[in-house]
């Protein structure tokens, strides 16, 4: 005659075993830095902080392209990021030993670039200098295929125009005299 309690006693042992596996498993599997700052894996913060940047800042270009930087920093385009019109610095100056080609936009592409900010579009604030491409070029009496940099210096867009204006007014002033 077998002990009638045997089954439930054995099953209880199984149950305790399951709990032990879960408890031990949890202890073993808990990531090391868990709870360093709170109830999460603390190291993930440093992992995120260490992720490499792709874009630098305009300071990144200064060292090697001082002329352009200087020109731009006193112009209407001073707030613009060099990298947005060109490419991220990480694709250009990879440390001290590799220069990839830095795209400079010419022709149609350049017109598209300038118009992406300056084309008159519903939604743009009124105070922002906008042009209607066709009208702008017509007003200057040039063909629609004229690129913007034929009149504006890209990095300081009013530089030479103001220059010309200054000269003209100087001439006019001289003529009047």
């Amino acid at each position: 005659m077998e002990n009638p309690n045997r089954f439930w006693i054995r099953l209880t042992v199984v149950f305790v075993g399951i709990i032990a596996v879960v408890v031990l498993g949890r202890m073993a599997m808990l990531p090391e830095s868990w709870g360093k700052y709170g109830y999460y894996r603390g190291d993930s913060i440093e992992e995120e902080a260490q992720r490499a940047m792709k874009y630098g800042t305009n300071e990144s270009c200064k060292g090697c392209h001082s002329e352009v930087s200087e020109l731009k920093s006193h112009s209407a385009h001073q707030r613009l990021s060099c990298e947005m019109c060109h490419a991220p610095v990480s694709e250009h100056a990879k440390g001290s030993n590799k220069f990839a080609v830095m795209p400079t936009k010419k022709g149609k592409e350049q017109i598209g670039l300038c118009l992406s900010c300056h084309q008159k579009t519903i939604g743009r604030p009124e105070k922002f200098p906008m042009i209607d491409h066709a009208r702008h070029l017509a007003a200057q009496k040039v063909k629609p295929s004229h690129t913007c940099d034929q009149c504006h210096t890209v990095h300081a867009p009013l530089e030479n125009i103001n220059h010309v204006k200054d000269q003209r007014s100087l001439k006019e002033a001289l003529n009047e005299n």
């Binding site: 005659m1 077998e2 002990n3 009638p4 309690n5 045997r6 089954f7 439930w8 054995r10 199984v14």
Partner: peptide, 18 residues
């Protein structure tokens, strides 16, 4: 059955209680 072979009425009573 965890290698048990109990067939007693007591065993069945326990089963039902649990």
């Amino acid at each position: 059955t965890l290698w048990t072979n109990d067939r007693s009425p007591e065993g069945r009573k326990i089963d039902h209680k649990v």
